[in-house]
């Protein structure tokens, strides 16, 4: 049964990578990153259950806190970029290009 959980975690992680690579909408890219964090969380909790120690749960809580911080900062940046350009396309946001 442990393998099934880990396979599911791999599938979700790969879907997150596909979302980041293939989509150009800022929000979809952002939520795909969150999906990858969740896949890592599932692996943490599975291994915590397998080894019957709760360190994995603590690590999953830390990942959730990092995801919350990332959400607050990323959304502030998205609002700023939307004010500047009026678009949500990642191809438009190439301000650092020389």
């Amino acid at each position: 049964m442990m393998h099934c959980y880990l396979y599911l975690s791999i599938i979700l992680f790969c879907l997150g990578i596909v979302g980041v690579v293939a989509r150009r909408n800022v929000f979809t890219v952002f939520m795909s990153i969150e999906l990858m964090l969740n896949a890592a969380n599932l692996a943490f909790v599975t291994f915590a259950r397998v080894h019957e120690s709760m360190d994995g749960h603590v690590l999953a809580m830390m990942v959730m806190a990092v995801a919350a911080a990332e959400a607050a900062l990323a959304l502030a940046v998205v609002i700023l970029l939307h004010k500047h350009k009026g678009k949500l396309d990642t191809n438009v946001f190439s301000l650092l290009k020389g």
Partner: peptide, 27 residues
């Protein structure tokens, strides 16, 4: 639900309250 099946009771509640509740409502 999967966390609940893995007997992670606290993480199950946190996933519902913090992730599906707070972070997603922010987005």
């Amino acid at each position: 639900g999967l966390y609940a099946l893995l007997s992670a009771k606290l993480i199950f509640a946190l996933q519902l309250i913090v992730y599906a509740g707070a972070i997603m409502s922010l987005i």
